[in-house]
């Protein structure tokens, strides 16, 4: 059992990790073929992950409904919505499940008029919460916070036409802030994150980090 639960996953991780790393830099035909096959397998894993996600979502909400947890009615809506959309996909505006997805019909209507509209509304509501949060928390308590506050105001004005309407200096300063200090900070963060990702990947490939195998060590 130890071989199946520990050794085999570690071997897979080592072999595919090293192969994926090395072939990225090798332009030879055989290396390209291996890369293509690995990428294809990765896509298959991705596709199966959707089933896993679906199973996880439905089982989570099923347990909420069964135990009548707070807000279980919302979980019921998840089931109803899932069922209705699945039916509409199978119906496919009268063309059946094996034809190409119809660009009209009840599925498209539900997608455009319910899903798109509600998702966009949820995202748009952020503007209201950000405004309230900015009023309460954006304070120039320290010199660093004051610099951040001034920069934020310049960027907020410079990103919209009213900035240029007030003065051409505002969008130009905004562009400088984005292209110089922002870029320097982002590059530093990106390099740090990338080096961290490389270090973590190497730890996983060489079996130093084994928490992904489960078991608590």
């Amino acid at each position: 059992m130890l071989f199946l639960t520990r050794t085999l996953p570690f071997l897979f991780c080592f072999v595919f990790g090293m192969t994926g790393w090395v072939i990225y830099y090798v332009p030879h035909e055989w290396a390209q073929t291996v890369e293509r096959e690995i990428a294809l397998w990765l896509r298959l894993v991705y596709a199966f992950a959707y089933f896993l996600g679906l199973f996880s979502l439905l089982s989570l909400h099923w347990s909420k409904i069964r135990q009548r947890q707070a807000g279980w009615a919302y979980s019921l809506i998840v089931y109803i919505s899932f069922g209705v959309m699945t039916l509409f996909v199978v119906y496919n505006d009268g063309h059946g499940p094996f034809a190409a997805q119809a660009t009209t019909g009840p599925y498209q209507w539900m997608f455009t008029s319910v899903h798109v509209a509600s998702s966009a509304t949820m995202f748009s509501m952020l503007a209201f919460f950000i405004s309230s949060a900015a009023y309460r928390t954006f304070r120039a308590r320290t010199p660093e916070a004051a610099i951040l506050l001034v920069s934020a105001i310049i960027v907020m004005l410079g990103r919209v036409p009213i900035g240029a309407y007030i003065s051409d200096i505002i969008p130009d300063t905004m562009q400088w802030l984005m292209s110089v200090p922002n870029m320097a900070a982002k590059r530093g963060i990106l390099l740090g994150v990338s080096l961290g990702a490389i270090a973590t990947s190497l730890r996983i490939i060489f079996g130093i980090e084994r928490s992904y195998l489960g078991g608590g060590d």
Partner: peptide, 15 residues
């Protein structure tokens, strides 16, 4: 544009 100005005014007021 107007919303950005409103948020800026609120931030300035808060400070």
């Amino acid at each position: 544009s107007v919303t950005h100005v409103i948020i800026i005014l609120f931030i300035l007021l808060g400070n």
